[in-house]
């Protein structure tokens, strides 16, 4: 009984410490969030953290506490252990709790957050979105803005660049082919469109069209924070590490200005 008591006290103390740690650091889990989708993922993570902390503390404490308490000392005359070979209460609690926690996780962050994501991606929600056609080839990203007539967005150096207005949902239409050699289907491989600060990524599959929706929330750019960049996340050949593009999230006015400048440059 004494063991149980000590263990219980330790568990509570460390769990509380852990929770304090989650409160202090948890919002930092994604490091940098620049979209509502990233915030959704972050809040789901923090929820999981809150629940997993006491469980983690429980098991780790067991793994440290019991061996220390039950350690056989050299002066021990009895070498056998005394515990039971089965304890219905313990097993019942363990099984019920693990089932309950997993069902909870499935219902709460998993299904609820997924439903939220499905809603954002539903056709009704997308009507007023900015549409950006993203084309991936080995080993380059191309961005075009069909609503504005921009064929291929380029910066002053001739590199592909992605400009987004802040606080407006963007629908990325993802395709994989080589716009310079559209007849060479053999070059198509799977890429993965990822903007770390947006908290989501989507694979780009040859022969298929995939969609990703994001709503930028901060004015930022790759220069101010390198997590705001387009990065290929699925290995796609020797050029995979170089397959990235700079991103600029700008105000509405600045975006309009940029559109004009792109059209003037004939991009």
């Amino acid at each position: 009984m004494a063991d149980l008591l000590i263990f219980g006290v330790l568990w509570v103390v460390f769990s509380v410490l852990g929770e304090l740690g989650v409160s202090a650091w948890g919002h930092n889990f994604y490091y940098y969030t620049a979209s509502t989708q990233a915030l959704d993922g972050l809040s789901a993570s923090v929820f999981l953290f809150r629940f997993l902390t006491p469980i983690f503390v429980f098991v780790v404490l067991m793994l440290i506490f019991i061996p220390l308490r039950a350690r056989r000392r050299s002066r021990d005359s009895v070498v056998r252990g005394k515990g039971a070979r089965f304890n219905a209460t313990y097993v019942t609690i363990w099984v019920t709790l693990s089932l309950a926690v997993n069902l909870l996780f499935f219902v709460h962050p998993t299904t609820s957050a997924a439903e939220q994501m499905f809603k954002e991606m539903s056709p009704q929600a997308e009507q007023h979105d900015l549409v950006v056609d993203v084309v991936a080839r080995q080993w380059q990203w191309f961005f075009s803005y069909p609503q504005y007539g921009i064929q291929n967005a380029l910066n002053a150096n001739g590199n592909n660049v992605l400009y987004l207005p802040v606080n407006r949902p963007v629908e990325f239409v993802l395709r994989s082919y080589d716009p310079n050699h559209p007849y060479a289907v053999g070059l198509d491989v799977i890429h993965s469109f990822w903007i770390p600060a947006f908290g989501e990524k989507m694979d780009v599959i040859p022969g298929e069209t995939r969609y990703m929706v994001a709503t930028p929330t901060k004015i930022a750019s790759t220069e101010t924070n390198p997590e705001v960049r387009v990065q290929c996340a699925e290995v796609c050949g020797p050029g995979h590490p170089y397959m990235y593009a700079t991103v600029h999230i700008v105000s509405d006015a600045a975006f309009k200005q940029w559109v004009k400048q792109q059209l003037k440059a004939g991009n």
């Binding site: 993570s45 998993t110 957050a113 994501m117 990524k201 989507m202």
Partner: peptide, 19 residues
């Protein structure tokens, strides 16, 4: 195993996958 719980959640997985 505990980090696997994060990866099992699709919304979090979309950020963590392939990192």
């Amino acid at each position: 195993g505990m980090t696997g719980v994060f990866l099992a959640d699709p919304v979090i997985n979309l950020q963590l996958h392939d990192t």
